[in-house]
Simulated scan of single mutants.
Amino acid sequence: MKDTDLQRRRFLQLTTTGLAAAPLAGLGMTTTASAQDGLPHLDEDSKEARALNYRHDATQVDHPEYQEGQNCGNCLLYTDPSAKEWGPCAVFPGKLVAEGGWCTAYVPRG
């Protein structure tokens, strides 16, 4: 498979993930801290986390798509921007991600 085919496939995967998750981004805005308390933290070694190269600490990310300053806390998919340390993410429903984490589904908050 050509490198351009792989790049196109990766782009389509990320675009699809972003488009699917974008409508869900606003749903978590009404989530209260008490509702989040019972949610487990996303395990970096889980299948879904590995699929999107998720890491709890963005400063430790070694991925070609990562750019300095990107983290879950300033991502559009982090559905409760007021959540500190751990918060909900539209890409990983039912789990909390680290505010300082990062994955390849990162979308800058407008």
Rank of each mutant, 00 (worst) to 15 (best):
R9E: 13
A83W: 04
T15H: 15
W102N: 05
N53I: 14
W86H: 08
R109E: 09
T59H: 15
G110K: 12
A51N: 08
A35D: 11
D37E: 14
A58I: 10
A20D: 13
G101A: 05
D62F: 10
G18N: 00
D57I: 02
T104H: 04
W86Q: 04
Y78E: 01
E99L: 13
P93L: 09
F11C: 12
K47C: 14
W102P: 10
P40F: 01
K84M: 06
L39Q: 00
G73W: 12
Q7T: 11
P93W: 11
Q60V: 01
M1K: 10
P64K: 07
G73D: 12
R10K: 06
W102E: 07
A51L: 01
S34Q: 10
L39N: 01
L6G: 04
V91H: 03
A90E: 01
Q36W: 05
G38L: 13
A105V: 04
C72F: 01
P23K: 04
N74G: 05
Q7G: 06
C72R: 00
D62Q: 11
A83K: 06
L96C: 02
C103H: 03
G100A: 14
Y78K: 00
Q67I: 07
F11D: 10
E65A: 04
H41W: 12
R55G: 07
P23G: 01
T4V: 15
R109P: 02
A25W: 01
P108H: 08
A58D: 15
P88D: 03
Y106I: 04
E65N: 00
T31D: 14
Y66G: 07
Q36G: 02
R9Y: 06
G28H: 02
F92N: 07
T79P: 05
A22N: 14
A51Q: 03
S82T: 08
H63L: 07
N53W: 13
D80R: 15
D3Y: 07
T104V: 02
A58Q: 14
T17Q: 12
L77P: 03
P81D: 02
C89S: 05
R109L: 08
W86F: 05
T16G: 04
G101C: 00
A25P: 04
T16F: 09
H56N: 15
T4P: 11
G69E: 09
G38I: 11
E48T: 14
G69W: 08
T17P: 10
S46N: 11
R55C: 01
E65K: 13
C75P: 03
S82L: 10
D5F: 06
F11W: 12
P64Q: 02
H56C: 15
W86C: 03
A98Y: 05
C103W: 00
A90R: 00
K95A: 09
L27K: 12
K95S: 10
W102Y: 06
H56W: 13
T79G: 12
Q60T: 14
A83H: 01
G110Q: 15
A21V: 07
K2V: 11
